[in-house]
Design a protein around this nucleic acid. Structure first.
Lengths: 331, 331
DNA sequence: CTGTTAGCGCCTTCAG
DNA sequence: CTGAAGGCGCTAACAG
């Protein structure tokens, strides 16, 4: 900018005023400055501006991975952030507590005006150690301290809906694929509770053998786990998969084993990903309402960035069951 | 940092030296500084450091959307960047030329030590207007100026492989779903050429009616377009879909219409997404080798960031056909 | 080993 | 309308 000022024979402040159209500048001066800007290919240094301003006009969405669910949610969040004139950037934690903690360090938070964090690895105690006034909204199914804004899904209710729907349509032995009880993953625990409650509500026994653990939340792990169940001879006539990605693995396992969906086995998932309506015969799934979650979370973040200092909110986003051909109530 | 210095009764330089473990500091002094750091909860201001250092230790991967293909590639790129001690952030352009151009502005580039950009909207002339010494690697199927490092896929060859494979196994009328000839999307044009070449190589006519346009590269658009073909009565016994996401739409359309895969219609896609192996009966797909593309692109970027000034490279990443149950050569 | 000086590039404030 | 001064927070270079 100093170079431009010299080239145009004015002070840096005049250059700044021209470039940012802040204060009015005489036309001839303005023209000289613009000419110098063009000649030198000058553009503002954002790092310097950020330092000076104490703001970056940037919001970070910090996710475990860029895949599937988070990719879909990110695409909903981006326009909402941009509508307020800020940029959105994504960062990745691999779901590890260390990475998540690092992302919440004072140092990293300073790079952003606000942060949306999908918590997967951190527990309540670790989160309680985070001290910062930076606007933050936590997403995800972990338990979090009261002072953080938090948006989560109605996991238990969703799992209950899906399971009850299959029971209603005749299933009596429903595998809870990946619905393990696990303090590290409240998501699976909550969904398991919903699976259980649907059984109890219907007066059915809860048989722990039908809760099948999976090694990771991938289609491959879902497929392998269900193939093991089939090989074991445990009879079943329904599968509630903890996510749609896992359900896709179940689809593969059932097809390979010659089991028909929904005739022999009903199947339901959770997340209602874009792909789920296209997988024949259409995957019945709990809709996590990405759009609504994105709006709620961004709304809370904007409120904080605008200076709101009231108590944090803890929103449980409602879910609904989308019935498709993989269950017998479907089309 | 000044606060810490005052609290500890030392100069800011000493604080800096302690915090960054740069120069050795006497143990008692060090302890006093650390105590002050803890007491005040001090952490370095990265924006200031970046300004001072002229580096940000951050690389941006700028993508059209966070979905599907780009999400999968991003997850491959992240560890490679982190292995060199830098952070990766993702930004989104929606595929619009304006956003892509803005991302390449001098101002935005200054925020990063290097940039990987998936070009979708910009043409060669627009890219030629970008003047910067910042390390950049372009990804994607557009034509780009020679001076940029560029990694693209062997689109034509991949499409040819997939189409030839279906011809070899008996298909004679293969729909090129989304393989329109379109200057705005070199990807589809190149894949169409491959589709054509497979026909010619086999001595078959190229019938333009079998090139079916789609409105967007989504499953919904793929499904709708193929349903229209079916409704039109145009006979076909194979589908080459321009991407796996589109192929998934074709899967749905075929299933709804009672057409069996691969008995009545063979089907192949492009990208070999994670989901593709799980969609019954397994989607035959051209493997875009995400991992290899990620390694190549990041390798070129690292070379530039390390100061290499030799001529830019234009890499065409090889592809291979992964045969699964949706074609008759499959398992 | 520790402190002082200076400047990265910008913009708010105040003076002319 | 234009310019000069000062500081955002940090660290390289040099001095003590």
């Amino acid at each position: 900018m100093a170079d431009v000022a010299r080239e145009a024979g004015v002070s840096v402040m005049t250059v700044s005023n021209v470039v940012n159209e802040r204060l009015p500048v005489n036309e001839p001066t303005r023209a000289r400055v613009m000419a110098a800007v063009e000649a030198l290919g000058y553009e503002v240094n954002l790092t310097a501006r950020h330092l000076r301003a104490g703001r970056t006009d940037t919001v970070a969405f910090i996710v475990p991975s860029f895949h599937d669910y988070f990719g879909e949610v990110s695409d909903k969040i981006a326009p909402l952030i941009e509508a307020e004139g800020r940029h959105l950037v994504l960062e990745r934690t691999s779901g590890s507590p260390e990475h998540e903690m690092a992302a919440l360090s004072v140092a990293r938070l300073q790079l952003y005006d606000g942060v949306l964090l999908s918590v997967v690895g951190l527990d309540r105690d670790q989160l309680d150690r985070v001290r910062t006034a930076k606007p933050i909204v936590l997403l995800g199914e972990r338990d979090v301290p009261d002072r953080f804004n938090h948006v989560r899904l109605a996991n238990e209710e969703g799992a209950r809906l899906a399971t009850a729907h299959m029971i209603e349509h005749g299933s009596r032995r429903i595998v809870g694929l990946g619905c393990t009880f696990d303090t590290a993953h409240m998501m699976t625990s909550d969904r398991r509770i919903g699976w259980e409650r649907a059984h109890r509500d219907a007066g059915l026994d809860v048989d722990a053998r039908y809760v099948v653990p999976i090694s990771t939340f991938t289609s491959a792990a879902g497929r392998d786990a269900l193939l093991d169940v089939i090989a074991s001879g445990l009879p079943f006539d329904g599968v509630f998969a903890v996510t749609d990605v896992v359900a896709l693995g179940a689809v593969a396992a059932l097809a390979e084993s010659g089991l028909r969906v929904p005739t022999d086995v009903q199947l339901a998932g959770f997340d209602n990903l874009d792909m789920s309506s296209f997988i024949p015969p259409g995957l019945t799934s709990v809709d996590a309402n990405h759009e609504g979650v994105a709006e709620t979370a961004v709304g809370l973040l904007h409120r904080q960035m605008a200076g709101w200092t009231g108590p944090a909110e803890h929103v449980v986003a409602p879910v609904r069951l989308v019935v498709r051909g993989s269950t017998r109530g479907g089309a």
